[in-house]
Design a binder for these strands. Sequence first.
RNA 1: GUGGGCGUAGCUCAGUUGGUUAGAGCGCCAGGUUGUGGCCCUGGAGGUCGUGGGUUCGAUUCCCAUCGCUCACCCCA
Length: 425
Amino acid sequence: MKIKAPRGTIDFLPGRIELWQYIQEVSREVFSRYGYAEINTPIFEYTELFLRGIGDTTDVVSKQMYTFTVKDDKSYTLRPEGTASVVRSYLEHGLGAAPQPVKLFYIGPIFRHERPQKGRYRQFHQLGAEAIGSQDPALDAEMIVMSMEILQKLGLGNFLVNINSIGCPVCRPTYRQALRDHISPSLAKVCPTCQERFEKNPLRILDCKIAACKEVADGAPKSIDYLCPECQTHYAQVCEYLDAFKITYRQNDLLVRGLDYYTKTVYEVESLDLGAQSALSGGGRYDGLVAELGGPATPAVGFASGMERILLVLEEQGIKSPHSTAVDVFVISLGDAVRTQALVITQQLRQAGLKVETDYLGRSMKSQMKQADRLGAKYVLILGEDELAKGVVQVRDMQDSAQTEVPLSQVVDRLSQNAQQPAKA
RNA sequence: GUGGGCGUAGCUCAGUUGGUUAGAGCGCCAGGUUGUGGCCCUGGAGGUCGUGGGUUCGAUUCCCAUCGCUCACCCCA
């Protein structure tokens, strides 16, 4: 084996892909029930979109993007997140003129050049939603309950919802200053990275994992204590709705998101069953992004979930796709003389809506039976020269091994009736 | 970018005080009387022992390098 999949990418093979599809199926169902319509945007965009949207001092933009130029001198980038593209599309197609708010969801690949580890890949997939055009805190709460419902519908439960409000352009400067004032005296003790952060983004010092920084961050002023009246009211409303929905959450003063566009509400749903990469979904409000990308001042809120991480937890919990891969009927043919007739029956059964397999290797009866068994066939249909001569086929029920002779002319009707309902045990 | 762990069949792994044809289980293929699955038995296919170099009469086993995988840090989904 010479060529392997690039580092940080993975293949999804049969056996695993079923659960992967199930995640999408459940998500689409939940999204649609909450009134979100699917949108599919390109997986690459002009680099500028992300520079302006995400913030060029963030790690994602400064060192994790797959950026390239092809023939023309334009710079393209594989999308490192989904929101900027959705907002770009919203503006490009004048969705500001559509009924408001505009509620969209997406499912697709995301690219970030990082060191891969458990639950983190360079090409990974996110499912996410955006509600653009309203500042209603009900939508903030909706994002949280909706993302949780997807996880719950999939069979997960052991969550911790972390939530915080990081204010808006009105109140954040004040808070930022208060934070600097608190850290300033002990700035020398803090790690080099945080010393840099001190100037450009002191909020990030709060979630630094270095012990010394944690110590300094301990007892730091909390962003929720510095919210302007508007942000305060908004946050209180979000919490009130969550309470009303009976969602248990934790106000986490240290939760600050890595992308610049967030305002007010930020949240993260964490799985207590995962290791280091425990965040299953995260999101928040971004009231400034639409304007930042050249549109009118438009409030918005959204979230995104990492599908590979969800898949990992599902597998660790032993959760499987409810959809069976077993075939309804396996058609055994014995000898070249009956081959065509066997294929015709196979074809007819398939068109009648059954999942049907047959032999393609000219194998022995025993081998074909074995194959039928492995494929989980409910019925096996045996066609040999004797049967063909009599105009019948043997129909074997694989559960109870009962075998009956059925006229060729009736076999499709008979089986399509039987196989519709699960064979009795 | 930093640090730890690991690289032997498709998968999970044995195997060295350096020595003849490198093993097991599972999986795959084929048989176990004439056309019948799940259990069992037998046989078969399949490996540049990650790669390159060095030490040695001889290296999967020792040394060096290199690549890859993995977990963690940073950051995030």
